[in-house]
Write a protein that binds this DNA or RNA. Sequence first.
DNA 1: TATGAATGAGGGTTCATTCAT
DNA 2: CATGAATGAACCCTCATTCAT
Lengths: 236, 236, 236, 236
Amino acid sequence: MSKLLSFQERRATLTPKSQKRVEAVLATARQVFAEFGYEKSTTLEIAQRLGISEATVFTYFGSKRELCMQVISDWYDEISGELEKEVPLIQGTHAKLGYIVYKHLNTLIRDGKGLCALVLSEGRSPDTGFATLLADLQRRYTASLMTVLSSAQASGEIRRDMPLRLMRDMVYGSMEHILWNCIVSGRTPDLEATAQQVTELLWNAFAPPNPEVTALRRFQVEVADALRQYEKTTTS
Amino acid sequence: MSKLLSFQERRATLTPKSQKRVEAVLATARQVFAEFGYEKSTTLEIAQRLGISEATVFTYFGSKRELCMQVISDWYDEISGELEKEVPLIQGTHAKLGYIVYKHLNTLIRDGKGLCALVLSEGRSPDTGFATLLADLQRRYTASLMTVLSSAQASGEIRRDMPLRLMRDMVYGSMEHILWNCIVSGRTPDLEATAQQVTELLWNAFAPPNPEVTALRRFQVEVADALRQYEKTTTS
Amino acid sequence: MSKLLSFQERRATLTPKSQKRVEAVLATARQVFAEFGYEKSTTLEIAQRLGISEATVFTYFGSKRELCMQVISDWYDEISGELEKEVPLIQGTHAKLGYIVYKHLNTLIRDGKGLCALVLSEGRSPDTGFATLLADLQRRYTASLMTVLSSAQASGEIRRDMPLRLMRDMVYGSMEHILWNCIVSGRTPDLEATAQQVTELLWNAFAPPNPEVTALRRFQVEVADALRQYEKTTTS
Amino acid sequence: MSKLLSFQERRATLTPKSQKRVEAVLATARQVFAEFGYEKSTTLEIAQRLGISEATVFTYFGSKRELCMQVISDWYDEISGELEKEVPLIQGTHAKLGYIVYKHLNTLIRDGKGLCALVLSEGRSPDTGFATLLADLQRRYTASLMTVLSSAQASGEIRRDMPLRLMRDMVYGSMEHILWNCIVSGRTPDLEATAQQVTELLWNAFAPPNPEVTALRRFQVEVADALRQYEKTTTS
DNA sequence: TATGAATGAGGGTTCATTCAT
DNA sequence: CATGAATGAACCCTCATTCAT
């Protein structure tokens, strides 16, 4: 759970009118931060999109930084909460993995590279406790996947000779790059198909290694090489 | 090839004294941008580290943005060039993949999350043609890997039922996340070991699926048969 | 009498409930102003200390400035009133002077440099009639001393060759500086001892000059000088 | 000597054009701070009076606070320097005291209550090292008087039964209040006459108390006796 | 060429004050 | 009467950029 007040906690503390404002500001701030990144976003822009004055923003959030942290914190709470609720309902490791992949890809597309870049670029603020907070949020979010992988390792469904950490990075890293390419190229991919393919690749990666296949591949390559070598000799 | 002048092209255009300046500025700017990111870097900081005046920086680079683009462009030229030169010298798909992984991880560690975050956060400037340039640079850099994967697909070493693009994203994405975790946690990993593990996981992910394995088996059997046949003929 | 409504006058005008409020606000405002000075004090701070809203403060006081003036005005009323009541009860010029000195020093310490600095810094507002008001308050407050000194002059107890005004400034100025030094150095002096010493010095200053003593001092200095001169001659 | 660079040190460090600017800014800032006090002064006002942009002010002084400290520091350096140079040239304790009084009064009138109030109101900034700096400056400034009083105590010209500190406060406090009254009343006094009167009062205040007067009398008698003895000898 | 000097254009933040409820 | 809510108006400060020398 994040140290900052969550959606629900704030909701309990404030008057109804304030709640509306706070949530409106958060929603708009999320958009703006996602669109421009932290530095290029201005409190003026946020205020103007809401049709309110800058001062009003500062009535509810002590500083731009605090607002941004709240935005990120809320976002993580949202997606972490969904995952924690839904993943346990799914049967089978493969299916769970597939769901997490799909969900994550979907989230990335929906909220844009924006929030991710925001998180990435703001994650390195040595002075503020931001980095720590972020690490916590991230840990909670990835916990769902970690649980799945951990159980699968225990049951022997996936290989035990690799650190969980590495496998997790492979999952999220792959998807991040996929999204990044979508953004750069401007194309929106077939979400479901892509998710299935990624899941397939990952599943293979995590599968206990098959010595026979490895040997076969090596054999095939060597024969092919030899053949090529021979042909080169004869044709020259 | 990038649209901006490369190292070599600039070198040809300018007087020797100017070259020195330009390169010195670029080197320092790279440090500063990597350390602080684009927004928090200042031309003053760059100038001061060089012991020159801010105005001099602007004598050689029209704007902060242009300077930053050149820095990124040069960086890509460097790492792309190295890869293009070295990868072809390595024998075997698995080894090539391993080398690319190791090299990339190494580069990331060396140049810090800094330049990556820079690229990430500056990649989304709607007005400038930066995004396009970046896509080009990225394409060139990843071309080495693409070539390797493509050949391997052709030879049947790796699966043919997945888009190359996806596999590429898996390679680079995994590594990016690994680095990101190193940064956040503050731990520097054993580079070689990690590279090997990642390569292993990827190699498994890319392994041909069952139908192809069946084909491989048949191939192996046929070759073995042929060989036996041949030996029988000669020994008899 | 000050132009602003005094404690008593306000009390007569308002409902009992309002009185409470007004006085509570004034009391808190006095604390805050004394602690931070005018500019650094905020209406929010005052309201929060009272547990009421800023707007309520403005219900009773038209502006921050007005509130501040009332605070100062009340403060003067208090200390002036006390003085006017108590000084006449004391017998003897020396004792009266001593009491005024002690009382003033005590007041300064108690209410902190705060209110004094407030008065000082706010006394120069060219636009408002604040300066005039302040002069009136000050005049009333110092009237007690002036009366004492005036009578003493009439009776020949203190010298007649100096303007009363000057002597008054000497009294209050000395004390102010003493306090200022206490604050800067952070040390709290022995109030009674200091008051006695100051009174002694002042009493001497105000005493009719003794021609004999003056002449004696001059004589002593001249002889000493001559001696020194002689010694210098002989030793060289 | 103050910790901040003094006039002269800055002059040595900068180019001639910068010197002019720095001094111009300091001069104008002194006026503005003296006129409005710290809080009500704005960097914009200072810049506008100089016909330059606000940014230029910040080119030479890192912050408003730093500028203000420099202003105060320079002011003290000026008046302290003058005093240190001139006081030793004057003969006689009474004359020295008179000069210091006159000079101080003159300074206060010239530079206005402004800078004094500035010093007073800014002297209580707990966080910055301002209070410390100020104490140093003040100590240096009052050192001239302290030396005079100390010597006079040693020679028996002024009373030994009072702390120097108290006498010093009496001197400066009296003058401060005199000025304060001039300002409030709007009248400019006859400087020389006032200075003489104040000096006279102080001189009286500092006069040795009775026991010491008795000693003086005895001394005078003995000297007189000695002289008479001597004359008798020579004339006989 | 190199730079000292200057600045325009904001940006975040504060706070006394207003007003409808 | 009390206040929650909103804001206009400043203010301090930053920095990329220009230009005369």
